[in-house]
């Protein structure tokens, strides 16, 4: 507010601060060619150092977007995985008395359906239970001869989950040879795995981020060194520090945005093609399903692509700020 009060009116404030922003200048130059000045830009648009900087930014932005996208997908898959497992419990009915077995499964299912906090009860048929064992036993006739326990999948209400110890006690007191598995041990192990995956992903992201920052700052400094003469001439002909800094900010922000967009676009294409590549690599049928179950669908949602936009903004801002610092450092040696 104090900033605004320095100006006569809001229009002057807008002209002095908002429209003079290097971001506005770069966006204008991207969307409207006629917005560019008739004369050549004061800062040389295409130099060897500038081209090298463009390549470095595009590559580092591509790598940073790839890492950010991969970490995002892994995190999302782990969360989905954990949410699925946490919202389901399994009841196992042991086939002790063959004659009464089907009736017992139905009774247990009805009993479970009446419990508060349980949304859905899905008893698996004998064939479905057998299917689960096929990966280990194969297509064998011996399967029908075995006393295969029957599973009942119970979906619980995530908003108001039941007290599982109460449900377990009620089951055990009403039925014999019936056990409830709330996947607690599996959940605990899974939580450790997902947290490790997320932490590992963030560690990689931080490393790639640090490498990106170091490369871009270094490349921008090199590009700035080649512009020393321009800065000195502008200084001697009476340009204010703010004007010189603004010219360079505009130039380096432009490089940062364009190169960053190229990198982000490359990464987006990679992520768009990833599900197709995964489908081709994993083949069809059960193997593909298991692969998908393990690593997720590898589809990046819109929030993931938004993350790429954030990477471009950070990278371009970094270029802009480094150039600004470079200008003031050179000018300090002359004032």
């Amino acid at each position: 507010m104090k900033e605004i009060l320095k100006f006569d009116n809001i229009k002057a404030y807008w002209a002095e601060t908002v429209t003079a922003s290097p971001w506005v200048a770069v966006i204008r130059s991207l969307v409207r060619r006629e917005a560019r000045a008739m004369s050549a830009p004061i800062v040389q648009p295409a130099s060897v150092a500038g081209r090298a900087l463009t390549v470095v930014i595009a590559i580092m932005c591509f790598l940073a977007c790839l890492t950010a996208g991969a970490v995002y997908i892994v995190n999302q898959s782990a969360n989905d995985w954990f949410a699925d497992i946490a919202s389901e419990v399994t009841v196992q009915v042991i086939p002790v008395e063959a004659a009464e077995f089907e009736k017992k499964v139905t009774l247990v299912s009805l009993f479970l359906a009446k419990q508060a906090g349980i949304v859905k009860v899905s008893p698996l048929s004998a064939e479905e239970s057998g299917e689960l064992l096929k990966p280990w036993l194969g297509n064998s006739d011996a399967l029908s001869a075995l006393p295969v326990p029957r599973l009942i999948a119970v979906e619980i209400d995530r908003a108001s989950p039941p007290d599982m110890s109460v449900v377990r006690r009620a089951l055990e007191s009403n039925f014999r040879d019936v056990t409830l598995d709330d996947h607690r041990r599996w959940q605990s192990e899974l939580r450790t795995v997902t947290r490790s995956m997320a932490l590992g992903g963030f560690a990689v992201l931080i490393l790639v981020g640090a490498a990106t920052v170091a490369s871009i700052v270094s490349a921008t400094k090199s590009a700035m060194a080649s512009n020393r003469e321009i800065i000195e001439v502008l200084h001697f002909v009476g340009a204010r520090e703010r004007f010189i800094a603004h010219e360079f900010e505009k130039h380096f922000l432009n490089i940062g945005v364009r190169a960053g967009l190229v990198g982000a676009l490359g990464a987006s294409v990679m992520f768009l093609l990833l599900p197709v590549v995964m489908r081709v690599l994993s083949g069809g049928g059960l193997a593909a399903a298991e692969f998908r179950q393990l690593v997720g669908s590898a589809v990046l949602d819109w929030q993931g692509y938004l993350l790429f936009g954030a990477v471009v903004v950070v990278v371009a801002s970094l270029c802009m700020l480094t150039s600004r610092y470079g200008v003031y450092r050179i000018l300090k040696s002359h004032d």
């Binding site: 004369s39 004061i42 003469e229 009476g238 004007f243």
Partner: peptide, 17 residues
């Protein structure tokens, strides 16, 4: 400045102003 024409070099101070 090598990337500016003679005309643009001469006009530079006014542009800066």
């Amino acid at each position: 400045l090598d990337h500016l024409t003679t005309w643009e070099n001469v006009a530079l101070p006014l542009r800066v102003f």
